[in-house]
């Protein structure tokens, strides 16, 4: 465990040194701030605009960071040949993968929290006070973190066997398909025969990001069911672990000679 944490800490340290990361955070905070202006040119939806725009920015920028840093995590180590130094130490390959994953996830969580602080400051500026429905926004942010958890695992899996360019294309495509997961389930339910089985399999294989998106719901102050929070947590955790185990299995069998 200490070896995984050591890799995670170094990954986190490396990620926070990346200037691109800060640019993205600043840009996301600017968008949150601009939501205040955007709301004023609309009609009666200032608060809804702020919540939608703020949470969407946190989600999109986090997904972008998870894809573009996630795909380079393993590849960079191979390219710079620092992987050999790491593996020369008593660090097993699967520990390396899990450590890298946790390091990036920690970075993403910190980024999301920073953006969330900016977002809540903007919300306080607009509403002058916090109310009970604002608690539901915390649930939406938690779900966004679960998205990051799954998306980072996806990016890690691709990065263990593919080039950064292909990995980014695969990861982004997986994200897009994941947002259509409910449609895939509906399509599977409406199909028959082999198509039904294939579509059902695809619907369960791709990450289900639809159920993790409650931004609109919380923007209207609608509470999120406790059971949904629990089930989504279990789903995101198990899905990520499965992908990480697959990534570790691929990485164990890679020949670096």
């Amino acid at each position: 465990m200490s070896r995984i944490l050591a890799v995670a800490f170094n990954t986190y340290r490396e990620a926070v040194r990346d200037r691109v990361l800060y640019n993205l955070i600043v840009f996301a905070l600017l968008i949150v701030g601009s939501a205040l202006l955007f709301g004023q040119i609309s009609l009666e939806i200032e608060r809804i605009v702020l919540i939608n725009m703020g949470l969407t920015s946190i989600s999109i920028f986090g997904i972008v960071i998870s894809i573009f840093i996630g795909i380079g995590l393993v590849w960079k180590e191979i390219e710079r040949r620092t992987l050999y130094t790491v593996l020369a130490h008593p660090v097993r390959r699967w520990e390396f993968i899990f450590g890298k994953y946790l390091g990036l996830l920690g970075t993403l969580t910190l980024n999301a929290l920073l953006m969330a602080v900016g977002f809540f400051a903007a919300l306080l500026y607009l509403s002058h006070t916090f109310s009970r429905p604002d608690l539901y926004i915390l649930v939406a942010i938690y779900f966004i973190l679960l998205q990051f958890m799954m998306m980072t695992a996806v990016a890690m899996l691709y990065s263990t066997y593919s080039s950064p360019l292909l990995s980014s294309i695969f990861a982004f495509s997986t994200f897009v398909i994941g947002t259509f997961s409910e449609d895939l389930h509906n399509f599977a339910a409406a199909s028959q025969g082999a198509t039904k089985w294939i579509m059902t399999a695809v619907a369960y294989i791709v990450p289900n990001f639809s159920s993790l998106n409650v931004v609109s719901q919380v923007a209207h102050g609608t509470p999120v069911l406790g059971a949904l929070v629990l089930q989504n947590t279990v789903y995101a955790f198990t899905y990520s672990v499965v992908l990480l185990l697959c990534a570790a299995a691929v990485f164990e069998n890679r020949n670096f000679k």
């Binding site: 955007f38 040119i41 609309s42 009609l43 939806i45 809804i48 605009v49 919540i51 939608n52 725009m53 969407t56 989600s59 999109i60 994200f175 897009v176 947002t179 259509f180 449609d183 990001f209 639809s210 998106n213 931004v215 609109s216 923007a219």
Partner: peptide, 21 residues
């Protein structure tokens, strides 16, 4: 809606603002 990638809330706000404008 399909093209919104799940971020329907924000897109709805944009379309509502566009309707108002």
């Amino acid at each position: 809606k399909r093209m919104s990638l799940g971020y329907t809330g924000l897109l709805a706000d944009i379309y509502w603002t566009r309707a108002v404008q």
